[in-house]
Amino acid sequence: MNIFIGLINGMISGATPILLAALGGTFTYYAGIFNIAMEGMMLGGAFFGVLGSYYFNSWPMGILCAIIGALLMALIFIVFTVFLKTDEFVTGIALNLFAVGATTYMLRQIFNVKGVFSNPGIIPIPHIDIPFIDKIPVLGDILSGQNLMVYVTVVVLLISVFAIYKTRFGLRLRAAGYNSPSLDSSGVRTSTMRIWSLVICGVLCGLAGAFLSLGYVTLFSENMTAGRGWISLAAVILVNGNPWGIALISLVFGFTDGLGLLLQKFLPNQFTSMVPYLATLVSLYFYSIQKRKKSI
């Protein structure tokens, strides 16, 4: 039973950063932006989260700084793709490498360390116990006592679904990607919608980064996002941007993450670390097969 609960909790904490970043990616996906900079935004968020939490000795400041850090990355992306009309693909790749370089550089300049910065001064995001629910056996261990960011993620998911499908903003957002000339001719600037979608993506990637460096673990290490931004992108593409589908896929990835940890008893950990990436390939396989059937 304990293994089961551990697996479920591992799944939830593994899924959280991917889901947050992928929800951000959904907004840009609908706005018609090929956004591959989630990895960089997340990394920027993770670094600034640690920075804020360490200097202000408070986790809310950590989250705030994480959002600001990710927004800075998003801002660079906006300046280059929306205003200077640089290729989105090139900008994304360069921004991801910029994020790796800049965080490594600042890690050394600000904290005087190479590789990893961990310090008791970094205040992690707390876990929340929900009264009454935490008394229920089994279910209480899963629903209650999760990291605050997990609950935030659920709220973000619901808001995203509502905002994309039920509001005027969502309609315009989808129009920006689906048919930008008709949106422009109806008096709404496509570029404005794209900027907003990137800002939202920045905020959500900042939250994802904050969860990574202040929730999942309490430290910052070089390139700690380790391809999670790419997995988020894969999740968005796999379900054509549907938020519920993204939630499902993120849980699957989270599950493989937890499964990998469990398998460490039997396999060298290098192989268990591969599991989420293999899972991405397998889900891409099923997606492609299905898509091909539809097209025939």
Partner: peptide, 23 residues
């Protein structure tokens, strides 16, 4: 054979190669 987009597969294979060579 499966029309899987090489953009994602090559990225995932990077991570797998990283862990495989480490092992």
């Amino acid at each position: 054979f499966f029309s899987m987009d090489e953009f994602i597969t090559t990225l995932m294979l990077n991570m797998i190669a990283d862990f495989f060579t480490y092992w």
